[in-house]
């Protein structure tokens, strides 16, 4: 449904997009992850026809966004939930959007109900919490009942209850057969909801795979060993031709060797150990490994992706 191909874009000396290519299929939630400055928002703006790429193209159902008649019927997007005029009520915000697509006020009330904005919809948006703004933004995205949903950092500023609701909503949207693209700079937010992840850094795709495959690949038979003599254990394992590193005073990590074999080697050498566990990588670890050299900001977790 979304077909991004070979996007390149520079902002002055900064390369924002450097051959960005991926697709989003109907009926899936595709996570779009990468550190801040990786080009996620720029890609989304190009998909929505807001920014023009220097090269490449982004198509929705085979057409450039700008050629879609009444585009909100084809693509619903939440780009910046704070992009509201504070003096206007949430409902009136949705109303002008509906009018721009030739829709009536009835659709507005349906969308308000869908996101659970309720009576707050008749209050001025300036008084909304960030979570309420996110809900209003999602109502705007759902207004035209579109087959493609794009959300840029939808979890930002949401309370735990909202995050749970959001995850459920994204899953159900995909279950209805829609193509859902969700960007995040925190991989953990996507664990359990994304079927597919596109990991990006410096304007390029670093990994593009099913979540299962990605995690399995990163786990690569790691075994975690709990012992009171980590140095001895590591030495013994090395002698047996096994890659082992001392993680801390009680832990040794072993890779490329099944847990069974580790137990045998240690037992023969008489090194004491209390626990051997086969380790399965989290999506977060996969992500960190992939983007370790790519992040522009390694420390901290800034909330807003730097624009331009």
């Amino acid at each position: 449904m979304i077909d991004v191909s070979g996007l390149r874009k520079r902002f002055g000396p900064t390369v924002a997009l450097d051959g960005m290519t991926f697709t989003v299929a109907p009926g899936t939630v595709t996570g779009f992850v990468g550190p801040n400055g990786a080009g996620k928002s720029t890609t989304i703006r190009v998909i929505l026809g807001l920014d023009a790429p220097d090269e490449g193209h982004a198509l929705i159902g085979g057409k450039p966004y700008a050629r879609l008649p009444h585009p909100l019927h084809h693509v619903g997007a939440l780009v910046d939930a704070a992009a509201l005029q504070p003096g206007r009520t949430g409902r009136n915000h949705l109303l002008w959007l509906a009018h721009s697509q030739g829709m009536s006020a009835g659709h507005v009330d349906t969308a308000i109900e869908l996101v659970g904005l309720g009576r707050a919809a008749r209050r001025k948006a300036g008084g909304y919490s960030l979570g309420m703004r996110q809900r209003l933004g999602i109502a705007a995205a759902m207004l035209g009942d579109p087959p493609v949903i794009i959300m840029d950092e939808p979890f930002n500023g949401m309370d735990p209850e909202g995050i749970i609701w959001m995850r459920g909503l994204l899953r159900s949207l995909a279950a209805e057969g829609r193509a859902v693209l969700v960007s995040s700079h925190l991989m953990g937010e996507l664990q359990g909801i994304a079927d597919h992840v596109v990991v990006v850094g410096r304007g390029r795709v670093l990994a593009n795979a099913r979540v299962e495959d990605l995690v399995a690949r990163a786990s690569d038979d790691q075994v975690r060993l709990r012992t009171s003599a980590p140095d001895d254990a590591a030495a013994v394992l090395h002698r047996a031709g096994t890659a082992a590193t001392v993680a801390d005073a009680y832990t040794v990590t072993v890779s490329g060797t099944p847990a069974q074999r580790v137990v045998e080697v240690l037992g023969r050498a008489g090194v004491p150990f209390s626990e051997v566990t086969a380790h399965r990588a989290t999506l977060e670890e996969v992500y960190l490994r992939l983007t370790g050299g790519e992040a522009e900001y390694q420390a901290g977790t800034p909330h807003q992706e730097a624009r331009r």
């Binding site: 026809g49 992009a83 005029q85």
Partner: peptide, 18 residues
């Protein structure tokens, strides 16, 4: 200009690409 200040211009142009 208020639409530019708030970023709402993107919502506007996403709704009406022309």
């Amino acid at each position: 200009t208020v639409e530019y200040r708030r970023g709402m211009i993107r919502t506007t142009f996403a709704a009406t690409p022309r």
